[in-house]
Amino acid sequence: MWKRSHSVALGLLAGISLLLLSLPDEWATKVKVTVGACYLPLLGLAGTVQQVWQQAGEVVLSRRDLLQQNEWLRRENERLRLEALQAAEWGRENARLRRLLGWREQSPWRDRLRLARVTLREPTPWWRTLQINLGARDGVTPALPVLVPEGLVGRIAEVGPFHARVVLVGDPNCRVSARVLNETRDVGLIVPADPLPRDLVLLRYLPRGARVHPGQAVVTSGLGGVFPSGIPIGSILDVHPMEHGLYIEATVQLAAPVNSLEEVWVLWP
């Protein structure tokens, strides 16, 4: 049975949706950032729960000291085993941070790099973005490059007070001018490839005579003004001429582990 309220509801839904979609980009970004901030309590809560969980384990173990000797030894054994597991995790984290720190010391931009933690990942299949825990109050501005020791990750797209959104290399909104490290140092444009696999992108508009071979490294060219030159992007996987032979296209395997990022570095201007 059709009711008038159904038509009103549909009209309301369509009206508000179209109003939101027609917002100017600047306003839309502000609205997104404001609504996105409603997840900050949950992010804080998740971190606190993780800490409390770790502390609670230690408290429970100290109370176990009051139990009988046999029980105590058994618990002690379990605690040591757990600690060994935890120490292994700390060791891995330590090694990762040392590697990041070592890379930062060697990096030509070492005074301009700032570490950020990845807080949220992209929920939809058609974009490649992530959220980090640095925002406008830390001095982050749009278009800052984001990288890891292995190579380029992407650039900052939207900035909120406490967080920022990073568009990854391979997202349709992140195109990078790239240079192949061969004899002719050919320049092309990094654009997205297929949705799967996620660590492959295309290097388009290479000149017809470019001598590009699998295994050659690809770095940022510095053209365009967003990314400094020389940041590793990946390596050539295969090369194929495009239709009508106007240019050459290459598939590039990204150097940065875009599927498993936990910390990234933001490069200040």
Partner: peptide, 21 residues
């Protein structure tokens, strides 16, 4: 529709409001 879409768009790369409709 409005709130759920709005929340999803705010944490994704979608333009704001595109998931609502």
């Amino acid at each position: 529709g409005l709130l759920g879409g709005f929340m999803l768009d705010s944490v994704s790369g979608n333009p704001v409001g595109v998931s609502c409709l």
